[in-house]
Design a protein around this nucleic acid. Structure first.
Lengths: 113, 113
DNA sequence: CGGAATCCCCGACGATACTG
DNA sequence: CAGTATCGTCGGGGATTCCG
């Protein structure tokens, strides 16, 4: 760990994990991927997350500029991904790819060369 | 979230996050990246992680076949990455790359097209 | 409808000490 | 050297209720 560059990596990795990690953030991003959604719509879509948590997560993601909150005239709010938010998708795909390979390995495939 | 594929993605992502997330796992992997290390060596390398935690993390990573524990004759144990463990590096690099971009965006760069 | 306020629980993480 | 044992804390996540 004396290695400076790796120290920095760790910080970056932690940041990203903070964004897509946790129980809900990934799901929220995924749900918004198709199209923008309203609060209640999200709440239903996410298998009954409590409003408190949903609000908190949305705020966090908004702060990180991954999504935007747009009140429409009346009592309605729409959340949708920003370009930056969408740019996460390729990364997610890489992660998923490794994750699948990982599952195979752990389930007992031979792998040691 | 009705989207089946995305549900699966989320699971995979969570798995991966579980591996590189948390406070220490990433650091341990990074530390072992150069070469295998002994328990105490790791402990020192990781800026005073307590033995309890280190043991727990090592066990977890071992279970996931990212590293191997090899007792050498005498009272010494060496931990080193498996091929599978090493295969994480490219992924980490992708994550770091996005993380850096992300920091720029959040720090206030224009980015909306 | 879209939240905010309160209260609570549990699991991750840690400090410290001890052992074969 | 390589752990175990015991205890403690701290905060994320949740249930429930109330509000404009």
């Amino acid at each position: 760990m004396r290695n400076k560059q790796k120290q920095e990596w760790l910080r970056d990795v932690q940041d990203v994990i903070d964004i897509i990690g946790g129980r809900w953030k990934g799901a929220i991003l995924a749900s918004l991927c198709d199209k923008g959604k309203r609060f209640n719509e999200l709440q239903r879509d996410l298998d009954i997350i409590t409003p408190r948590i949903l609000t908190k997560e949305l705020r966090y993601l908004e702060m990180n500029k991954l999504l935007v909150r747009e009140p429409d005239s009346g009592s309605g709010v729409t959340y949708s991904l920003t370009e930056h938010g969408k740019s996460l998708e390729p990364l997610i795909i890489s992660i998923v790819k490794w994750g699948k390979k990982h599952r195979e390995v752990v389930l007992g495939q031979p792998m040691e060369v």
